[in-house]
Simulated assay, not measured.
Amino acid sequence: MPFMNYPACVLMLAAALAVFPAAAEKGDRDKPMNAEADALRYDDLKQTSVFTGNVVITKGTIIIRGARVDVMQDAEGYQTAYVYAAPDKLAFYRKKRDAVDEYIEGEGEKIEYDSRADTVKFIKQAVLRRYVGATLADETTGNLIVYDNPTDVFTVDSSGLNRTANNPSGRIRALLAPRNKTGAAVTPPPSGPTPTLRPSTALGDDKK
């Protein structure tokens, strides 16, 4: 796919025992995919479905929303979904993590979900968040974010990231909550503003 040919400036931000120590919900990939939309075009010969208009896809704990979703199913029953956002909006993905009260939530102009590999790609204006209950714990932005559900590892690429007033540098931005010795996230106190990140303008100060 065209979005796989990114340069080597990819930042590995999380591993199974670092940022996301618990596994994602294991049964989701084997659950049936349910869809609601304003319209559907289904091709039985090619095993493809095109949903359009306020599309909502559910698959176990997974929730996907977009203006259009193209779904392809292979001979073994695995599904690949391409989710497209409406103009000036972002497509949405949410999933519960296994054995903990945590949720992974992401957005992008386009989302690709592969049930065989159990991976999710958030493409352009990509955002990936982790919630502990209803509290935001981690948040990462980039141009391309690839999240691997079985290992809870994700990579972020800033290539082509648009510079905005909130992020004039166009670089990857990450908010990662501290964790205690058991690996659980340290929930911030309920009072006070949520911490925000400031973009860096240089990669270090070249100190000797």
Score class of each variant (00 low, 15 high):
Ile104Arg: 00
Thr119Arg: 09
Arg173Asp: 04
Asp44Val: 15
Phe3Trp: 11
Val10Gly: 07
Arg68Ala: 14
Phe20Val: 07
Lys208Ser: 07
Gly66Phe: 06
Tyr103Val: 07
Gly60Phe: 06
Pro188His: 08
Thr58Val: 12
Ala177Trp: 00
Lys181Glu: 07
Pro7Asp: 15
Leu45Cys: 02
Tyr147Val: 06
Gly27Asp: 13
Ala137Asn: 15
Ala8Ile: 10
Ile64Gln: 03
Asp70Glu: 14
Ala15Lys: 09
Leu203Asn: 12
Arg129His: 08
Ala99Phe: 00
Arg29Ile: 08
Thr140Gln: 05
Arg198Phe: 02
Asp152Gly: 15
Ala184Val: 00
Gly160Arg: 11
Lys181His: 01
Asp205Pro: 03
Tyr103Ser: 08
Thr196Leu: 09
Lys207Asp: 06
Phe122Ile: 03
Asp88Ile: 01
Asp43Gln: 12
Tyr113Trp: 09
Ala24Lys: 01
Arg129Gly: 05
Asp206Gly: 02
Gly77Ala: 06
Asn167Ile: 11
Pro199Ala: 10
Pro32Ile: 04
Thr141Lys: 05
Asp70Trp: 04
Lys124Trp: 11
Thr155Ser: 14
Asp118Leu: 04
Lys31Cys: 08
Lys46Phe: 05
Ile172Met: 09
Leu90Arg: 11
Lys59Ile: 00
Val100Asp: 01
Ala75Ile: 07
Val100Ala: 01
Val146Met: 04
Tyr6His: 07
Phe51Arg: 02
Val10Thr: 13
Pro32Asn: 09
Glu36Trp: 12
Arg68Ser: 14
Met1Phe: 14
Arg129Tyr: 04
Arg116Pro: 03
Leu136Gln: 08
Phe3Arg: 03
Val186Asn: 10
Leu17Ile: 00
Met4Gly: 07
Arg116Tyr: 08
Phe3Ile: 06
Ala75Gly: 15
Ser200Met: 09
Ala37Ser: 15
Ala99Leu: 03
Glu105Pro: 02
Met4Pro: 00
Ala85Gly: 03
Ile64Lys: 02
Leu17Met: 08
Met33Trp: 06
Ala165Pro: 09
Tyr82Cys: 02
Gly192Thr: 05
Pro190Tyr: 00
Asn180His: 05
Gly106Pro: 03
Lys181Ala: 10
Arg94Pro: 01
Met1Lys: 12
Asn54Ile: 04
Ser191Cys: 00
Thr196Met: 09
Asn34Ala: 08
Ile172Arg: 10
Ala99Gln: 06
Gly108Met: 02
Ser158Tyr: 09
Glu139Arg: 15
Thr135Ser: 13
Thr119Ile: 06
Val56Thr: 13
Val10Phe: 05
Asn5Trp: 08
Asp101His: 02
Asp70His: 10
Lys95Val: 03
Leu128Asp: 05
Phe3Gly: 02
Thr140Tyr: 14
Val83Phe: 03
Leu11Glu: 14
Thr48Ile: 13
Ile145Glu: 08
Phe20Leu: 13
Ala177Glu: 01
Thr164Val: 10
Leu45His: 12
Lys208Gly: 10
Ala85Trp: 02
Val127Asp: 01
Val156Ala: 14
Val71Gly: 05
Thr135Val: 15
Pro2Gln: 11
Met1Pro: 13
Val83Met: 05
Ile62Thr: 14
Met1Cys: 09
Thr187Asn: 02
Arg65Lys: 15
Asn162Ile: 12
Pro189Val: 05
Tyr78Phe: 15
Thr164Trp: 08
Leu136Gly: 07
Glu109His: 07
Leu17Cys: 00
Leu161Trp: 11
Tyr93Phe: 15
Tyr6Asp: 09
